[in-house]
């Protein structure tokens, strides 16, 4: 029964990956034929089966850009840049989207250099480093039982702090991927609320604006804008990166 289940699971995985590959090729073909709406549909179906397909995310952003849906283009290109923080071509594409929206600005990463560096090293690299340090530390602990020396103990202490740092970095890198702190306004314009009772302010947020999630209120979400100001908006009005 178990074998049957394994075979069925394997067959299903192969089938879905083949379907995803087929949709990807269709998307490429349609995009090259400038049929962006159809191409967007194909790339979206690829992401349904493999949400972390970076090429599909990039191509989707690119298609939205050429289709003049700048908010969504910025969203997907930001998602792509989150996974590839140093891709200059994607940064240029976002700048193009800003230009199309009439915004005179260039793209800046919402994440700190430390966060990006920790992620770029790779979550599993930190994990492997932690395990290696743990093995070295274990060896030194064992040696210290054999013969207690000041040097050995000092080295153990140093390795202990290094191991803790690697563990924290591994945790931070994992959190970076799952992080949904930032969101993009994908609609032309969304209202800003004065309070949870539905009263509106005169201000709105335009397409392409990036906001940082602070907290949830009863009916809305509180976000921080790029200038540092806070605003109350509907969570359905934005899409998280």
């Amino acid at each position: 029964m178990i074998r049957f289940t394994i075979v069925l699971f394997f067959a299903f995985s192969c089938f879905t990956s083949l379907l995803a590959q087929d949709s990807f090729e269709k998307g490429l073909y349609l995009a090259q034929a400038k049929k962006y709406t159809l191409a967007i549909r194909e790339f979206k179906s690829v992401l349904e089966t493999n949400p972390a397909n970076e090429s599909a995310i990039y191509n989707l952003g690119n298609c939205y850009l050429h289709n003049k849906e700048n908010g969504k283009a910025i969203l997907y290109l930001e998602k792509y840049l989150k996974l590839n923080p140093s891709d200059e071509e994607a940064m240029t594409k976002i700048d193009q989207a800003y230009l199309q929206l009439g915004l005179n600005k260039t793209w800046k990463s919402p994440y700190s250099t430390t966060e990006i560096l920790i992620f770029q090293v790779g979550p599993n690299t930190w994990v492997i480093l932690s395990i290696l340090l743990s093995i070295i530390m274990s060896w030194l602990i064992f040696l210290s039982f054999k013969e207690a020396r000041k040097n050995t103990l000092a080295l153990i202490l140093l390795l202990f702090f290094l191991t803790i740092s690697c563990l924290y970095s591994a945790f931070a890198a994992k959190q970076y991927i799952a992080d949904e702190r930032f969101a993009i306004v994908t609609e032309k314009s969304i209202p800003i609320f004065a309070n949870d009772l539905g009263e509106l302010t005169q201000n709105t947020l335009s397409e392409g604006t990036r906001v940082e999630f602070i907290s949830m209120t009863k009916t809305n979400i509180k976000v921080r804008l790029e200038g540092g100001k806070t605003a109350l908006i509907k969570s359905a009005s934005v899409e998280f990166i």
Binding site: L28, N50, A52, S55, Y58, N62, P123, A173, K174
Partner: peptide, 19 residues
């Protein structure tokens, strides 16, 4: 300029082993 697309490298963000 024509749309510059990326081929399907089908990369998957590796699942973190941490935890």
């Amino acid at each position: 300029e024509i749309i510059s697309l990326r081929p399907n490298e089908n990369t998957k963000t590796p699942q973190s082993m941490y935890g």
